[in-house]
Amino acid sequence: MATFTIAARVEIELDIRKSRFIGIVMPVADREAALREVERMREEHRGATHVCWALMAGGQSGMSDDGEPSGTAGRPMLEVLRHHDLDGVLAMVVRYYGGIKLGAGGLVRAYTDAIASALKNAERTERVAQAEIEIGVVYSAEPQLRHWLAQHKYQLLDSRHDTLAHLRLRLPAAELDQAEAAIRRVASNASIKRII
């Protein structure tokens, strides 16, 4: 079954009984990246009453009600992401309290609506599993290898040089075996280490 992510960050705003709800959905690589974004929103919205979040990211999924009554924010947001078959997506809602209590049911509706509204404006894309490898080659083979990488549009993440030239790249996991065979044709003495 295909899983999906979203192409870019989307932000919307809802006013519900004088409370301001800012709903944000965005693609993220992992839980660490998601928590950095949550902290960034807390810094940006210091006057907010709550910054609740939900993350769908395989085994790294999680959620937080950030002081709202238990189960009224994080879980409903996570359910919206799950309902849309999303993965690698962070949902956040920044709430500025307006003085009127919404009750548990009203909070669940508000947090659900904020994320559902943001997702209406988000472009869904199929999520392609990625892999990372590190290639070690003699210096004389590096130009041919870089040319091959450019032709295939694989993402070069890092390079370092010691006794060998080391290139770290990201590519679709489904192309890994085929890419390794091609790399060995380009640089017969290449060492290839799968990172993830």
Rank of each mutant, 00 (worst) to 15 (best):
M1D: 11
T3P: 00
F4S: 02
F4P: 00
I6T: 08
A8N: 08
V10R: 11
L14R: 13
I16N: 05
R17Y: 06
K18M: 08
K18I: 02
R20F: 03
I22Q: 05
E32C: 06
A33H: 09
L35P: 04
R36T: 13
R40K: 15
R40S: 14
M41W: 15
R42Q: 12
H45S: 09
R46I: 05
T49W: 12
A54M: 07
L55N: 09
A57D: 14
A57R: 11
G59N: 14
S61G: 10
G62E: 07
G62M: 08
M63N: 10
M63L: 14
D65Y: 11
E68W: 11
S70V: 14
G71T: 13
T72H: 12
G74Y: 03
R75H: 10
R75A: 12
M77S: 05
L78W: 11
V80K: 01
R82H: 06
R82M: 12
V89P: 01
V89S: 06
Y96D: 10
G98Y: 05
G99C: 12
K101Q: 13
G105D: 06
L107A: 08
V108Q: 01
R109N: 10
A110D: 06
Y111N: 02
D113G: 00
A114M: 06
N121L: 14
E123F: 00
A129L: 10
A131W: 00
E132P: 01
I133P: 00
I133W: 00
I135D: 01
V137F: 01
Y139G: 10
S140Y: 11
A141F: 05
E142P: 06
Q144L: 15
R146L: 15
H147K: 13
Q151V: 13
H152K: 15
Q155T: 11
D162K: 09
T163G: 11
A165E: 08
L167V: 11
A173L: 13
L176P: 00
L176Q: 00
Q178Y: 07
I183A: 03
R185M: 12
N189A: 15
I192E: 00
R194L: 00
I196T: 05
I196E: 01
